[in-house]
Design a protein around this nucleic acid. Structure first.
Length: 203
DNA sequence: GTTTGGATCTACT
DNA sequence: GTAGATCCAAACT
């Protein structure tokens, strides 16, 4: 994974991020997680995107250059991490929904409370951030300039294992085929639709 | 200044 | 399966 690859629309970058590795180095230790599930939030035309209503102080990072980390708090409790993609000025980002811990599992489990099964350590956006130790202070971090959080290329993922599906947990445009995940991976959650999601037409 | 809604997760029934 | 926890930011009056 490199800057060139990231400077494309989120829906193009999202599948390429599968198999990539996010590493967070802290005084406590290092945790590395292979990304197994992503979701694309594509510009101001996406009703579910934070950038839908234009640039605001909170989502300003999304409008910046690719390769930065956009962290925000959801429901007052959880942190969600996005990797900003697209050219500078284009609000495009990929939400990291799930991953598999490949290094520092003990530390990740400790952050999650100590009694979490391995496949669950980084399952779900909030849990992913918790396991990796991502908080608001990492918002705006440049993943490509040697900060504590870095993005690196993992083992190539067979294209046949990459699946596309509707987005989960969003209240609008949840049927956009912008969710990408590795087929059969135990760390990928089979989440229900958001309670606020609009029911399918005709249901 | 006030209100409302949200890209979630966990626990309990 | 269902409800609750819990905080911030954007939009509106």
């Amino acid at each position: 994974m490199n800057v060139g690859n990231l400077a494309h629309p989120a829906e193009e970058v999202a599948p390429k991020l599968l198999g990539a590795i996010l590493t967070h180095e802290t005084p406590e230790g290092t945790v590395s997680i292979t990304i197994t599930e992503t979701e694309a939030y594509s510009g101001t035309a996406d009703p579910a995107s934070h950038a839908y209503r234009g640039r605001t102080p909170r989502n300003a990072v999304m409008f910046g250059p690719a390769g930065h980390l956009y962290v925000y708090r959801s429901h007052g409790l959880h942190w969600c991490a996005n990797i900003v993609t697209g050219a500078d000025g284009i609000a495009s980002a990929v939400l990291i929904r799930a991953g598999r811990v490949i290094e520092g599992e003990d530390l990740a489990r400790k952050r999650r409370g100590g009694t979490v099964e391995s496949p669950r350590l980084a399952r779900g956006p909030g849990n992913f951030c918790q396991a990796l130790g991502i908080t608001a202070e990492h918002n705006g971090t440049d993943l490509l300039t040697g900060a504590s959080v870095t993005l690196s290329e993992g083992e190539p993922v067979p294209a046949a294992l990459i699946r596309v599906g509707p987005r989960v947990g969003v209240s609008r445009a949840h049927d956009w085929q912008h969710r990408f995940y590795l087929a059969g991976d135990p760390t990928v959650s089979a989440y229900r639709l958001s309670p606020r999601a609009q029911p399918p037409a005709g249901a």
